[in-house]
């Protein structure tokens, strides 16, 4: 039972992160390889707001960090990625790699490489809860699963029924036609970057609250990328399935074989997938030649 819970928690973490890859790819065909780093920024922003005494309650600190994360995402588009429109997709992807490296360096400079515990700063207790016999889960992990479910429900509803969600899908299919129909492309792209960074930051903050924070958190963001790709980069449902596949294989390997394999196997699955079915389980096949 414990193993199922572990898969569920890790799968939730990957799902919450990988939807960010999917949203930006779906709307603009750009693979945001700085997503893991932006997730890390979200977690460190919580560390900063948690240290600010004047905020009072932990909820205010989390709320402010979330608003800041959304702003960071929008600013990344407005100040950086906007200039890449009209350039090749490859140039845009390389820009995100450069941004990621920059963020990694900046985070160590700003917040030091030390291990931090935002949960203690916020006085949030994280007790173990026994859900079943011999199967335990931390409170934050439980919240994480709930938040993931709620996030995906909101995203599905938004993309299906929200006017701006429809516009995001339309822009992903044919940006020119969307613009000709009066849709401001820059607004759509900025929104996609904002939502993507926001959901990533939520994941980063919950991981930091659960198990502390240092710059190795980037590795988790990096492992969510195979999850998004296995599922199909333009499919939200695929991101969930891909996340569960990656997390299941990882947890089972740690449990029954060698824990050292856990960092390598997601990428082995990624390579296998790229060879067999490069557009992913639920992805659109024709989209691939645009990458």
């Amino acid at each position: 039972m414990q193993i199922v819970l572990n898969i569920l928690v890790l799968g939730s973490i990957y799902s919450l992160i990988s939807c960010g890859y999917v949203i930006i790819y779906k709307v603009s065909r750009v693979l945001n390889l700085a997503h893991g780093e932006l997730m890390m920024v979200g977690a460190y922003l919580l560390l900063t707001t948690a240290s600010a005494g004047w905020l009072g309650s932990p909820l205010a600190a989390i709320g402010l960090a979330l608003v800041l994360s959304l702003t960071v995402g929008i600013l990344v588009y407005v100040l950086l990625m906007r200039r890449m429109t009209g350039e090749s997709v490859l140039a845009a992807v390389l820009t995100t790699i450069a941004l990621g490296i920059l963020i990694r360096g900046a985070v160590v400079l700003l917040w030091s490489a030390q291990h931090h515990y935002p949960a203690t700063k916020l006085h949030i207790a994280n007790p173990s809860i026994e859900l079943f016999q011999n199967a335990k889960l931390s409170l934050i992990s439980l919240i994480l699963i709930g938040v993931t479910v709620a996030t995906y429900a909101a995203l599905f509803a938004f993309m299906r029924f929200g006017r701006w969600g429809l516009r995001m899908r339309a822009t992903g299919q044919n940006a020119l036609l969307a613009a000709q129909r009066g849709v401001n492309l820059h607004a759509v792209y900025a929104l996609a970057w904002g939502i993507s960074t926001f959901t990533g930051a939520v994941a980063g903050m919950l991981i930091a609250l659960d198990s502390g924070l240092d710059s190795t958190i980037v590795m988790i963001g990096l492992k969510a990328f195979p999850a998004a790709l296995v599922g199909g980069l333009d499919s939200l449902a695929g991101a969930i399935i891909g996340s569960i596949i990656i997390s299941a294989s990882e947890v089972i390997l740690i449990q029954h074989f060698n824990p050292l394999l856990s960092d390598a196997v997601p990428f082995l699955i990624l390579i296998a997938m790229l060879v067999i079915r490069p557009w992913g389980l639920f992805g659109t096949r024709e989209e691939l030649d645009r990458v």
Binding site: R163, R167, R169, Q173, L177, R181, G182, V183, N184
Partner: peptide
């Protein structure tokens, strides 16, 4: 490429800003 193929007829009108 005059319509959005993955949106319904109604949604094609709906997305117009």
């Amino acid at each position: 490429d005059k319509v959005f193929p993955n949106l319904t007829v109604q949604e094609n009108l709906e997305i117009v800003a």
